[in-house]
Nucleic acid binder design. Sequence first.
DNA 1: CGCAACAATGTAATCCTTTACATCCATATT
DNA 2: AATATGGATGTAAAGGATTACATTGTTGCG
Lengths: 332, 332
Amino acid sequence: MPTIIQVAAMAGVSTATVSRVLSHPDRVSETTRLRVLEVVDSLGYKPNVAARTLRTLRAAKILVTVPDISNPFFASVIRGAEEAARDAGYAVVVGDTRHDPSIEDQYADMLSSREVDGLVFLGHRLPDNLRPMISKQGARAPVVNGCEYSPDIGVPSVHIDNAAAGCDALEHLVRLGHRDIGVVTGPHVSPISRDRLAGAIQAAERHGLRDRLQVRVGDYSAQSAAGHVSDLIAQGVTGLFCFSDEMAMGAISAIRQAGLSCPDDISVIGFDDLPLARFFQPGLTTIAQPKGRIGHQAVELLVNILRGGESLVSQITLPHELVIRSSTRAIG
Amino acid sequence: MPTIIQVAAMAGVSTATVSRVLSHPDRVSETTRLRVLEVVDSLGYKPNVAARTLRTLRAAKILVTVPDISNPFFASVIRGAEEAARDAGYAVVVGDTRHDPSIEDQYADMLSSREVDGLVFLGHRLPDNLRPMISKQGARAPVVNGCEYSPDIGVPSVHIDNAAAGCDALEHLVRLGHRDIGVVTGPHVSPISRDRLAGAIQAAERHGLRDRLQVRVGDYSAQSAAGHVSDLIAQGVTGLFCFSDEMAMGAISAIRQAGLSCPDDISVIGFDDLPLARFFQPGLTTIAQPKGRIGHQAVELLVNILRGGESLVSQITLPHELVIRSSTRAIG
DNA sequence: CGCAACAATGTAATCCTTTACATCCATATT
DNA sequence: AATATGGATGTAAAGGATTACATTGTTGCG
């Protein structure tokens, strides 16, 4: 592997000039620039990134951690993040934490060891070993939270208004005439799940349906929702609001297995608007999140911090949208 | 940020000793080890990875590129890769190339610049700028191909026997009595698509159905398959083999929109066995690929190369499996 | 014609860690 | 008691790029 020294020797210039040709072309005369570039090409020289990082204190890499990479929702967020990162000259390191705090910590260490310049974490838990950094550097710490958001951890974040979204979903079911409504939430530790539930409860109260609301706890997986279905059917539920499309699909599958039909017997509304939601049968009514934009903006926020930007915008709320397809229908 | 020098000074030892405490604890006396570790803790010292990489020529990072990260199939492969990487002491950098050769090249450069130690690429195209490296280093080049596989590019790879799988799928439809069978392939440039098609055609020939086989080209996306459905219906097809579950779902959705039913009128078989396949309605009959294992083994192969292992196993074929659910049915 | 100003390039320090080699000291061996 | 052995630690040289500062050479102006 050629080094800058060999390039310099072969081009008959100093290493400084070679470096300048590559990073500040305008500070070098055209003739030498061309000559150097020719040597660079012929040798196939590529600067050693470790050496550069060591010298410049910049790894040009951003870490994005997700609790579950096989969740299509996160895949879309990552894609947005990756795009924004590439535009800003950063590569993305993806960490799949599998909801495991020790793996989260492991990845967070990459920040402390300067393997990456910043972190976007898509989950609700701020890794413990980042606490000191956050409390020391405050909003200038290169850490951004995506999707979820916890006001208490003091980290900028990008998300939708989950309470409003929860409210919208429930309102939609009520508007269709449903009175006995079931809700399958995410885990209680998830702030966005709590927000959605709060929104849903508030809407239910507004219509005097608080007492008839059947709330069950899921974990965003299809299985977890399917498991609650027979119980909810027994309770006479006609409308069901699941906090993820996967759970909605699981629930619909279970409804069918119970010999009932969605939407004829039970209307189901999901959350996220996964790419497959429209191809599911029945087409899934759902709350669409701007997945790509969430990732995109989270990275932009982070890059801003890394550039020492003063912005200090700490919370970005993006719009959600109720997408009505055929898994919900007026009662009767 | 503390450096090793400060730790050394504060612990009253040389930097060499600190380094040894962290990387070769057994070569240091217990008393000094404890003393150093105490200082490391109190200062929150984390070795600078760039400096270490520069010195050791090891980035401890593996690059995995995918043509489309929002494809759940790849997400599962990545997860397997990530797991194997972490076990071997590597982090995974994920690159989403969006089928764009220039982005592929961009990521491949990370190998040349030693930002990463190795590359697993999940696609069929070997980035151009890797050619020289491959032809120079041959099988010792730290590059592995996952899922797809091109015998000509001379890179070790991990995949299933796609021809056999294509054959299995078609045999299944024939066994159910279907005679007019449609196939929606992937792009022609994709070797795995060609293999599956070859397998399917071979099976059709065996049953004297070659001429009745209706072949259409898709791009693995739901939309692309949906677009072919009305035409295939017009051709009187009763069985449809799609080269991805997403296409199968798109096709089923289109079949329904055309007023027909799957599986009553048309049986559909997919490929991949995505996590959602069993929750789809009807439950998707499909060829299951060992997604996680593919990623896992690809990384293991790569790590083996990185460790200078002599293995030189160049092609690993993993087993696939026909999973029968309810989207296929005997003709009737 | 002489000097200021500036453009182009070179010199060498620096980023932080790892590790080959040197040194020291204590224990074991004869 | 003298020496060999080996364990613990220190010294200092990489590793490859960037960049402040120094130097050289040109151009322009009075």
